[in-house]
Structure formats: C-alpha cells, structure tokens
Design a protein around this nucleic acid. Structure first.
Lengths: 325, 325
DNA sequence: CATTATTAGTCAAACGTTTGATTAAATTAT
DNA sequence: ATAATTTAATCAAACGTTTGACTAATAATG
C-alpha cells in the first residue's frame, strides 16, 4: 500500500505538505506542486479513507436499513437515495432486515460501530427506540415514520386512499377494501382516505367490506377466492397495494369475472408490473424514487449543517387511471 | 464517544488489557473481567470499527457493483449476497452503475479507498481492467464474467436457451428469437442454445428469425409490433428475457392474438412478474438468489483463506412451464 | 528456599491521516 | 542593508485501536 509518507519521500517534502496540497488547504509553490503530483501519479497513490475517517470523524458513508430489497418499492427508494448521495461522494451501506426485528437491531449496532455519517431508516415498525443510539447523528425516516423527533419523508396516504375510492365510487357504491395489516400505519391511513371518500359520497361504511389480508400476491388471491366461495357478489375493489390487487385479479379471472366489465379494481404503489399487466392496473402512484431522492437530500443537508433541526416532508400520491377501471 | 481508554480508566486497568479481553486473546482473572464488563456496560462502550480497520486492515465490508438495483434480477442477487455475508459480520456497500462506465470507474476507486475486504462485480461490460486495481483483493464476478483471472459465478446460458427452444419446438418449427444486445455474452450464449436445439431437431437456422431489440418491455413490444405490421405470421417466440417477453405478449394481445392458442411464448429469468402475469409466462428460471448466495460464500472464503486461488462456479437454469406454452 | 515456569497485566509503537503551532524562506517596506 | 511582513514548509500530537515485547506477581518444581 502506498501512503502519504511514500509520496512525501519521493517528492522530498514533508507528509503534511502533501496532505495540505491534497486537501487544498494551503498553497505551495508551483515547483513543489509539480513534484508532489508527479510522485502521486508515479506511485499510484490514493488516500486511505479509513485513516481519514479516524482522524476527521467523517466516513462519507450512510446506512440504509429497509425491509426487503427485492421488493421493487424499496429498491426504487434506495436507488433514489444512492443516486443522490453518490454525487456528493457518499457511499451507501445496504441493510436488509427481512422484517426481522433482531436483524434490524443488529444492523443498528453495526452501523454505529462503522461510524456512518447518517442513517436512512425504513423500519420494521417494531423497533422504535433508535433515538438512544442515533440521537446525535442525522437520521431520516422514510415511508413509515413514528413520532416527530426525526426527520422524515412520507407520502400522503389519506389522500391516496381517498383518490382511489372516489374513482371507484363513480361506478359502484359497494367497494371492498383489501387491507394489509392495519398495524402498519400507512395502511390505516389509506383506510381513513377510503372512509373519507365514502362519507363524502354519503355511502355508509360497512365493516364487512374491509378484508384484512397478507401484504402479498397470494394474500389478495386468497381473499378474493374466499369471498367468491361465499357466493358474495363483487362490484369494485380497492387493494391496499398492487401485489394484492394483482392476486385479486388473478382470482377473479380464474372465476370468469371480466375486468373492468364486471368489476373495477384499483391498487396502490404503481409498481412496475402495474402498467405491464393485462389488463393494466389503475393505481395510486407513490413517488418512490423521489422519496429516496428527498431522503438523500435531507440527510446530506443534515450532515453538512449539523444544526440538529428536523424536517418533515410529505409528498403527494397521484392517481393513475388504466384499464381496470 | 466512549473509547477503550475510558473503559480502562473506569476499570482501573490498562487499555491493552481491555483490548485483549474484548478480543478474547488473553485470559484475565475473574475479578478484572467483572470490572471491565461493568465499565463497558456502564459507559455503553462499543468498539470503533474505523480504528480497528486502520489497525487490522480488515473492514468487514464488501463492495457490490451492479447495473441496476431496481431491476429485480439484480435485487435478488444482492439479497442473496447480503443474506450470506451478514451472517459473518460483513456489511455490503451498494454501488449502482446505471450501466454507466464512468460511474463504474468512480465506484471502483471509491471502494479501493474504503479498503473493502472484497468485491462482487456485475460489470457494465465496458470496464475490464479491474485487475490493475483489485489484483490483490478477492473479487467475484457474477453473471457476466470475462476471462478466468477472477472467481465467478454464472449460469449455463447455453443450456437455458436450449431448453426453452426445445420446448417450443414441440409445437412449431418456426421460432422467433427476440435477442437483447448480442454484445452481452449471456445473450449470445442463449442464442447458441437456441441454435443447438434447432440443429438437433433438424430445423434450419434462419437469420431472419432473430430480432435484436432493447432489453426492456418496450423493446419486446416494439419488436413484435414491427413484425406484425409487416404482415408476418408468428407461431412461437423465445424472448431472451422476461421483460421482453411481456412486452411482446402485450403487442400480440393488442392485435387480437391468443396466447397460447395462436402463438406460444417463452421468456428467460423467471422474474416475479412471470408467474403473476396473465397468462402466466413459461420461462427459464435463473437461480438469482443462489447466485448471490454463492458469490457471498466465495468471497467470504477468499477473504479467510487468502490463497489467491480462483474458482468458477456455474449453476444450472431450470425450465418452468406455465400457461404461455 | 531458591529457581523456574506460568499467569496477569502494562508499555509503547504502529496503522495513515489531519491540523494547530512553529520555523524557515522569500518578499516587501523602510 | 535591515527589519517587518508574507508565504512556504515542517513538526509533532492526535484519532481509537492492536499487538509484540516486557515486567510483576503468583504458582510449581526440585
């Protein structure tokens, strides 16, 4: 490994001179500059970030903790983060929790030891006491926030739920809400939006119309299959995410139900498949990439102006009408 | 920040004693152990990995460079990597190149400076001289390999192309191959498999049947739309990846073509959408997660037994028959 | 009981940087 | 020419660890 010392020796100057030059913190006369640059090139020197980090307490690394990287929703978010922070020279450490609290805890500790400059956190929802650990470092909560002690970027889920429901109300007053686990606050907010739209249209809320199912394709499939077995008639479905919607559609198609002729359906998220599916799925688009981008900007901002101020940004979802409505 | 020194002072021993205890490299008598543990807990000490890294030259970090994290193929791979290496205490730095060579180069340099312990590389295909930089550190190439100077994990693409084509040959002797860019060697290998299967069935290879298109949904859509406009009749299609296949199907459906009645179609990769699509897509499954897992195991192995030996592992693809054939 | 072997603990240098305090050299002013 | 000022370069400590070499204390041996 080539060190500053090697460069200094070759250029016949002191280590500190080279360091100052590298950081542009002091000026040297042209001829020394030439010698130093020559030595650097000759030796193929590149600075050791570990040593720099030890000295400066800046690692140019941020941690990103999320539930599942193979879920395109989170993949798009982290892409937004990475795209943004890499422009300022930051690297991203990926931590995939699989919604496992123990694993999440472990990552939190690892990241602390690694002296990251900031943390973007999309929690499992089970761990909430990260303040004790990361109290002093910049933290941005994405999608799922809790409390107001950290910065956050989220989407207006109430509005999203409202928009989808309102659209469906054009054709039907009997709308099934395929809910994910209500313990996730984004879901319960979408439900509020659903209820608001109903209320606005003077449609009574019917608890039988909300079916709680798994947050997956199979979850949606099973839910609809179940309803149909009961002999219940379906007019419209608002699924709390696109995967559920797709599973639901598959169940309907298998039962000879025509979409959108017989039943209308709307999803949530606008994952890649939504537009590609046949029929293409009407959905509420979440600005996933922008969420990541915003989170990246926030964390960068907090790192440079370490004023400890927190900011809450909430983005707007948008209704995307396609073939299922 | 709490340091070893603080712990040492509180426990009334020397810094080195605490260090030895922490690393289990020397034994101390029970009472000192108690004092040290008490101090650690009391102060909430955790080791600074940066300092450790500087001293030991082990950062417990590996870099992963890939073209696009929002592509589920790569997302699954990195998930396999992360799942594997985190069990041994390693963190993963995510580098998303967007297939941009300059960006890839930049990441390579950054990672060097960060003193990563190993690199998993899924290159853009444009950079090939990473040996100069990473000659001394463990490197594993995934999916796209070049040369034999590094370890690699890849899939038998020739076999994959062969399997898909052979299946389609049951129903038709006129099979269109929707090729991605042939400069990507995985694609040209699939094409070899395609040709092998044709040859085996004594079907003459027809250059007009291979259409080079973009590696995307739109690419497949446009390719098929073009063919149909020419008034050409289609019997069977082998798409070099699932997204292309999906786009192709969409174009056919829009033209009133029934799948699989009128035309059979097979894709490649088995992305999540393939099974969810309507009709569900027959495809060649790539063991994405296993590829990542294997890469993780390889890199870990190379880090611990630094014998500099390289290993080439090649996995088998599997044919998954669904509704499109 | 003196000697040796073992165990427990400490010292200090090193890892590759950064940076405030100094000194040396060059430039300008008197 | 000399002093005063500015500019260029160096010194050395520090960041938080690890670890080989060393010392002190305890236990085992003949």
């Amino acid at each position: 490994m080539v060190t500053l010392r090697d460069v200094a020796e070759m250029a016949q100057v002191s280590v500190s001179t080279v360091s100052y030059v590298l950081n542009g913190k002091k000026t040297v006369r042209p001829e020394t500059l030439t010698k130093i640059n020559a030595a650097i090139k000759e030796l193929g020197y590149y600075p050791n970030q570990i040593a720099i980090g030890l000295k400066t307490k800046r690692t140019y690394t941020i941690g990103v903790i999320l539930p599942d990287i193979s879920n395109s929703f989170y993949a798009d978010i982290i892409k937004g983060i990475e795209d943004t922070v890499h422009l300022s020279g930051y690297s991203v450490i990926l931590c995939n929790t699989e919604n496992d609290e123990a694993r999440e805890m472990k990552y939190l500790n690892t990241l602390l030891g690694k002296d990251i400059d900031g943390l973007v956190f999309i929690g499992t929802g089970k761990t909430r006491d990260i303040s004790g650990k990361f109290g002093s470092k910049p933290v941005v909560l994405v999608d799922r926030k809790f409390g107001n002690e950290f910065s956050s970027v989220s989407v207006n889920n109430i509005l999203g739920g409202y928009l989808a429901t309102k659209l469906l109300l054009k054709d039907s007053r009997d709308i099934i809400f395929l809910s994910g686990p209500v313990s996730v606050n984004t879901i319960s907010e979408r439900k509020i939006g659903y209820r608001n739209a109903l209320a606005e249209a003077c449609v009574a809320f019917n608890e039988n119309n909300v079916i709680e199912c798994d947050f997956t394709y199979d979850g949606g499939y099973n839910a609809i299959t179940g309803i149909l077995k009961e002999g219940r008639k379906i007019q419209a479905v608002f699924a709390s995410n696109d995967e559920i919607a797709l599973g639901a559609m598959r169940a309907m198609i298998e039962n000879g139900i025509k979409i959108p002729d017989d039943v209308k359906i709307a999803g949530y998220d606008d994952i890649r498949l939504a537009a590609m599916y046949n029929p293409a799925l009407t959905t509420i688009r979440q600005p996933k990439y922008e969420m990541g981008k915003k989170a990246g900007e926030l964390i960068l901002d907090m790192i440079v102006n370490k004023d400890g101020e927190t900011r809450q940004v909430v983005l707007e979802p948008v209704l995307v009408e396609r073939e299922t409505t």
